[in-house]
Design a protein around this nucleic acid. Sequence first.
DNA 1: TAAATATTTAGATAAGTTTCTAATTACATA
DNA 2: TATGTAATTAGAAACTTATCTAAATATTTA
Lengths: 105, 105
Amino acid sequence: MFKITIMNNLFRALNDATRREILELLKDGDMTAGDIADKFDMSKPSISHHLDLLRQADLVASVKKGQFVLYSLNMTVMDEIMVWFMQFKPATQTEKPRIRLHVGK
Amino acid sequence: MFKITIMNNLFRALNDATRREILELLKDGDMTAGDIADKFDMSKPSISHHLDLLRQADLVASVKKGQFVLYSLNMTVMDEIMVWFMQFKPATQTEKPRIRLHVGK
DNA sequence: TAAATATTTAGATAAGTTTCTAATTACATA
DNA sequence: TATGTAATTAGAAACTTATCTAAATATTTA
């Protein structure tokens, strides 16, 4: 169900405060690599490397726009992680009514 | 809202396939350190170390039972992680009814 | 109390990660 | 086409992590 290398890439990417901050920045809209780097007290190559790990985890996508590279969040992966976490929720009451007043055809 | 050291511990703990497997084992019920170790092709001290990181992240709790140490999942932290992930869901329709037929006092 | 069992701690090693500076590649424009 | 700007790649240093074996601690039982 959850491929192990995918999970490894995912949690590896999330295991860093800078990378999590980058994800939070991208919540508010796409940004170029340079604009992202400007938000941190860290060299551009370091940020580039962080972006690479986020891309490997499919948490962000990048598109070249002329001279710039535009980065955007990938929500669909977030959804998949949530499914993984859900397995730990105790087999919870499904939303099925316990009493049925009327039975249709 | 999300304390950084807590997040660091959390994602550090999750960033390992063995530790994630331990969490999945504990889904089905509490286990002793030895029983957990028996499920893996890895030395007991290594498993002990993994359990320590999971405990630091508050993902598991441990209780000494005589000679044994019993480990159990901590669901409440899972819930908190989910809240963190939720911030990335696009500002989704809140469950507020758009039409109110009757306005009470 | 001595021996057996369960678990953790200590210390070492190999592998992986973060960060830097310097160099390279790609694109835009004067 | 030469120059400037944006971004990535390469390579190195410092640090962290995963794993092992050996040793220590705690508990039970003969």
